[in-house]
Write a protein that binds this DNA or RNA. Structure first.
Length: 478
RNA sequence: CGGGGUGUGGCGCAGUUGGCAGCGCACCGCGUUUGGGACGCGGGGGUCGUCGGUUCAAGUCCGACCACCCCGACCA
């Protein structure tokens, strides 16, 4: 169950794969490219869902559920959309033992079917805005798959909104990107950069795509959430029209935004170390594990009394806590086991602690002796909660420092190529697709985003040397 | 779809010249252990990826197929 994990520094990719399996987040399914999300992984996803859902509700959104099957013809109504998605569609041609009249696409995303419904529901400016989110699964027939990062089927949330004006829809797009960034930073301790996708990187059918980009432990970039301004593209394709105050027929303006189980990959690759997973305290399914330690039966009663008392106290304070009372493995084994699983804080209670009315605390973000401290049982709940916050802050600070120390400002194209082997480049870019394509061809790195935060002035494009008005992040990406 | 690799108890693997299918881990039982991955003894578990061929005899040789993993072109 818990034999040695390949060190992260030795082989990042192998480390990731082993970790997902050993920490029991997920397992391979009998179908290529599909995964089973195991209870521990799903509990993590449930906490992600909860944190996001709360934010969606606070910003006025409601949940609904749209069907898994979409008529093939719907996908074809928006030109860019069908071009973008047709290579990766799963199509159902049979049902109930018969050929279907029209093939059904297993949704790769739901803009089309939701657009169709919105055209039925929206008649007047009084019906707007429509702010609906859906939690569900989608299928994209990817060629190359990896657990959580890219699987044929994945779980996500997709928000779909319709507005009376362009301005309002653009505001919504940015508002939800802010929600994602707030979630990533304050719940997952994953630092992200907000920005706009280039034309070649944007969502099929969008006018503008925005993204939060995070740097993984191997310095590759991961798009961790996206929010799209769809203009009137889908409104025109699906005839989403309303009468305005002046009794004039207008097309609505729509947005969509999504964050998927891929984010679990972001958490793993941002925080994990050679010992295994490190889960951010606010999302961890188990925030604190209590390991009882005793030699003889005589010691057991006193130790367990203290364990039960601390357990009850933490539970009452709302801490997600588990007592590891397995009697077939040693405490040493348990330490390693829970470290592998990324539990942020461990409480050890043994005979010495019973004597001194103390417990040993071991924080996961600081392995070994450095992360151990001995604290009184008195006021344990407050101590633990404070420690969980400290761990969150430390994880965020550490990840931010790592990222910032791997973002470079190359001075010429040769330097850019070198830079992209060991981090990101933040460079002036003229905006042309040719320059973007050249970098991709030479380095495999793509533009990740044009960040909202831009320096003053202008510069020369790192590729072609022409005048450039904006800086962009180049990086190898997942 | 191109390149590489692997299919043998749950997992990781060994299996020589074709001749009784093995080892480690995990699992079950008992006992001793328990503050950083415990130990002893005793157990259970396999139509060797599939199909076909060669042979007295195939995990092993030959052929075909299938699956999965890794690396590339596309993507949340």
């Amino acid at each position: 169950m818990a034999d040695k994990l390949t060190p992260r520094s030795e082989n990042f990719s192998e480390w990731y794969n082993q970790l997902v399996l050993k920490a029991e987040l997920a397992d391979y399914a009998p179908v290529r490219g599909c995964m089973v999300v195991r209870p521990y992984g799903w509990a993590l996803w449930e906490n992600i869902k909860e944190a996001l859902d709360k934010r969606f509700k606070e910003t006025g959104h409601v949940n609904a559920a749209f069907p898994l099957f979409i008529p093939m013809s719907f996908l074809e109504k928006e030109k860019q959309h069908v071009e973008g998605f047709s290579p990766e569609l799963a199509v159902v041609t049979h049902g109930g033992g018969k050929d279907l009249e029209e093939p059904l696409v297993v949704r790769p995303t739901s803009e089309t079917i939701i657009g169709y419904m919105y055209s039925k529901w929206i008649k007047s400016y009084r019906d707007l805005p429509v702010l609906i989110n859906q939690w569900g699964n989608v299928v994209r027939w990817e060629l190359r798959t990896r657990m959580f990062l890219r699987t044929l089927e994945f779980y996500w949330q997709e928000g779909h909104t319709a507005h009376a004006t362009e301005e309002e829809a653009r505001e919504e797009t940015l508002r939800m990107l802010d929600v994602y960034a707030d979630f990533a930073i304050n719940e997952a301790a994953v630092p992200v950069i907000k920005g706009i996708k280039s034309e070649s990187e944007k969502f099929a059918g969008a006018v503008m795509s925005t993204t939060i980009e995070a740097m993984m432990g191997d310095t590759k970039a991961l798009q961790s959430g996206t929010s799209h301004f769809l203009g009137q593209n889908f409104a025109k394709a699906f005839d989403i029209q309303y009468l305005d105050e002046n009794n004039t027929l207008q097309y609505a303006w729509t947005t969509s935004w999504g964050l998927s189980t891929r984010f679990i990959g972001a958490i793993i690759m941002t925080h994990g170390d050679d010992q295994g997973l490190i889960l951010p305290p606010r999302l961890a399914p188990i925030q604190v594990v209590i390991v009882p330690i005793f030699r003889k039966e005589a010691e057991k009663a006193a130790v367990m009394e203290a364990v039960d008392r601390v357990h009850a106290e933490l539970k009452a304070a709302g801490v997600r806590v588990k007592v590891d009372d397995r009697d077939n493995v040693t405490p040493g084994f348990k330490f390693n086991d829970w470290e592998l699983r990324g539990v942020p804080l461990r409480v050890e209670i043994g005979p010495k602690d019973v004597q001194k009315n103390s417990v040993a605390l071991a924080r996961r973000d600081m392995p070994g002796r450095a992360g151990k401290s001995f604290v009184p049982q008195e006021g344990i709940a407050a101590t633990v909660q404070q420690m969980l916050d400290t761990i969150h802050d430390n994880l965020l600070a550490r990840a931010t420092a790592f990222r910032d120390s791997h973002i470079f400002d190359p001075q010429d194209y040769a330097e850019l190529q070198e830079t992209l082997k060991e981090g990101w480049a933040f460079s002036w870019w003229c905006g042309s697709a040719e320059c973007e394509a050249k970098v991709k061809e030479d380095t495999k790195a793509t533009t990740r985003c044009i960040p909202f935060e831009q320096p003053e002035g202008s510069g020369k494009c790192i590729v072609c040397g022409r005048e450039a008005q904006q800086k962009v992040y180049f990086a190898r990406a997942y």
